[in-house]
Nucleic acid binder design. Structure first.
Lengths: 199, 199
DNA sequence: TCATTTTTGTAGTGGTCGCTAAATTAACTC
DNA sequence: GAGTTAATTTAGCGACCACTACAAAAATGA
C-alpha cells in the first residue's frame, strides 16, 4: 500500500472507495464486456478522465473491483471447527449472498468472463485463477479433515471440492436466472446429502 | 419448416448447415457479445451481406446457433427406465461432452449470457428460458419417479432438480477453466451420493 | 500575489461495432 | 439471345468503443 500525502494540487472531488463500489456493482451485474466506460461514468457520476486518473484503465478498474468483491462480498470457508458444518455454512452463506436484495444476483467471480472475445482473453485469467484458488482452498481443507480422521480415508478430496465449487457456481447461475433465497438454500441443503459417511 | 425451390436467381455458394455449425462454435466459445460479425466472417468464410441474407441478424443467427446446439450437442435425460441411472448417465454424458476434444469446452447454454449489457438484455432471455426448461424437465421426471414410488415420498423434487442443474452448470464452468474429462466424471459421480434413500 | 501541482470538464482521437446500399455476378425462364 | 431473380463483392453508414490532449479550475507553497 503506497500512502501519499498530496497536499499539493487540486483535491479529489469524490470518494474513491464509493466510486470503486459503484463500479464493482456495474461489473458484477453486467460483466466486463457488458460494462462500457459510458456505463461506468453514469454508475459513478464521474467523467472518463477522472476514472482513468484514479484507476488507470477499464481493465485495471475491473481487477480492483474483483479484489473489492472478494474482500467484501465473498463467502469464506471457515478453516477450523467441524468440516461438515463449515462446508454447510459456506454453501448456505453463498445462497444468502447470491440472492441478497440491493445487490446484483449471483457471484461476481464464479460465473465471470466465461465467454469472452479472443482479443481480450487476458481479462478472463484473473477470475479463472480466483476460481482455481477457491477450489484449491476447499480441497486443502478437506484433505486436512481426511488426515485428521474427520472424513473417511478413501474420500476423494479433489472431487468433493469440485462438487462444492460446482454447487456454488450453479447457485450463481440460478440466482442470476431469478432463483430465490429459499430455493438456493434448499439446493445447498440437498447437496450436503452427498457428504461422505464412514459406511 | 418452410421448404422452397428457388430455382431462380444465383444459387448459394455455401452450405448453410456448415456455416451455421461454424457460427455455433464461435458463439459457443466466445459468447454472444464476445463474437463480433467480423469474427463470424472469418469463422464462416462468408462476407457480412451473405450472413445477413441467410440468417437475418447477429441475434437471429445466435438463436439459430442455440437451437442447433441443443439439437446436436445437448445431453438428454432419458425419460424412461430407472431414474437414478438416468440421472447418473445424464451427468456423465455432460461430463464427456463438456470436455470433448475438437469442440469448445463447457456448455453453450448452461453458462451463456450471464453478464450482458443492459441494452441487449433481450439476447439473454432465450438461454435463460432454455435453462429454466431444463430444470423443469428434470423436476417433472423426478416428480414422476416419486409418484411411482421409485423415490421416497418426502423427496424435494424441485431442490433435487436444482442440484442436478447446478452440477451441470458447475461442470460447464470448470470445463471452461480446463477441467479434464476424468475430473468432471469424478465430480458427477460424487454428486450422485446426494441421491435420496429410503432411510 | 504568483508560480506550481493535480483534478476537472470539454471535446475530441482512431478503431471497431452491427448493419446495409449499390453494383456486379450467376443462375434461372422465355 | 433477352429479361428476371437472387447471391455475391465492394464500400461505407452512423453509433459506440476505450481512451486522451487540452485547457480551465482549485488547491498548495513561496
Amino acid at each position: 500500500m503506497e500512502m501519499r500525502k498530496p497536499s499539493r494540487g487540486r483535491p479529489r472531488s469524490f470518494d474513491e472507495d464509493a466510486v470503486l463500489d459503484a463500479a464493482m456493482r456495474a461489473f458484477w451485474e453486467h460483466g466486463y464486456e457488458g460494462t462500457s466506460v459510458t456505463t461506468l461514468e453514469s454508475a459513478t457520476g464521474l467523467k472518463a478522465p477522472s476514472i482513468y486518473g484514479a484507476f488507470g484503465s477499464k481493465e485495471a478498474l475491473y481487477q480492483s473491483a474483483l479484489d473489492r468483491y472478494a474482500r467484501e462480498h465473498g463467502a469464506v470457508l471457515r478453516p477450523d471447527g467441524p468440516v461438515r458444518e463449515a462446508v454447510a455454512e459456506f454453501l448456505l452463506e453463498a445462497a444468502d449472498r447470491f440472492s441478497e436484495g440491493g445487490l446484483p444476483p449471483g457471484c461476481m467471480i464464479s460465473t465471470a468472463a466465461l465467454g469472452v472475445a479472443a482479443a481480450q482473453r487476458g481479462v478472463a485469467t484473473r477470475p479463472a485463477r480466483m476460481r482455481a484458488q477457491t477450489l484449491d482452498g476447499i480441497e486443502q481443507r478437506l484433505r486436512r479433515a481426511v488426515e485428521a480422521g474427520e472424513l473417511p480415508a478413501k474420500t476423494d478430496a479433489a472431487a468433493l471440492a469440485r462438487l462444492v465449487g460446482a454447487v456454488i457456481q450453479g447457485m450463481s447461475v440460478q440466482a442470476i436466472d431469478g432463483a430465490s433465497r429459499d430455493e438456493l438454500r434448499a439446493l445447498a441443503t440437498i447437496a450436503m446429502n452427498a457428504w461422505p459417511t464412514d459406511g
